[in-house]
Amino acid sequence: MDLAFISQHYPLYVKAAVLTVVIGGIGIVLSAVVGLICALSRYYKIPVLRTITVIYTELSRNTPLIVQLFFLYFGLPKAGIVLSSEACGIIGLTFLGGSYMSESILSGFQSIKKGQIESAESLGLSKAQIMRYVVFPRAAAAAMPAVSANIIFLLKETSVFSAVALADLMYVAKDLIGMYSSTTESLFMLVVAYLIIILPISLLCSVLERRLRRGGA
């Protein structure tokens, strides 16, 4: 292990890690928004929107992110839609994550017993009020473990961004291996960088889960 090499090149990793976190973060937040919309449209069985949601979910869940990204980045420009690498990364991650989030959130909604909703109705709450005060808070708690698993899954999926020329961690590692054949050092920094990103989030999620389980049950 060449420590001088590491101290010389770690700023590249820091920059790449920031990019991974920013694009991953935006993608994950948008995934949650798309997921919530999809879950609501399926929960309330909104006619046309629901069909679109089901088709979208199946398409997104049954194809790899790298293929989705290739289509966005190399395919769409031929149809006149040119997207930057960053935009491709965010759109691709949202396309993939939206369906996973939607499934998790929907099963959270479905975990609320019918009796609860009927009681709320008999108390004279409107549909929106029922969602706001009865269904949503408890569905969110129920969906939390699955949603946090999705967040970690999506963070890990960002590793394929290098395929669409985003200078993320994998890209930097591959670059350094190619240029200096400093394989051990480059891979070491790569692993450390991912650990720094994923471990705290993973720990945070399990702490949150434990607290919710104690409070919710």
């Binding site: 199946e58 869940r61 049954n62 790899p64 293929v67 289509f71 190399f74 395919g75 031929k78």
Partner: peptide
């Protein structure tokens, strides 16, 4: 065929779909 990328990657997308969808 300068626009082949659109069709080729679209086809690959669908290929994966037709493999994974029945399993799901």
């Amino acid at each position: 065929a300068p626009n082949a990328a659109l069709w080729v990657y679209g086809t690959i997308f669908l290929m994966y779909f037709f493999v994974c969808f029945p399993l799901s």
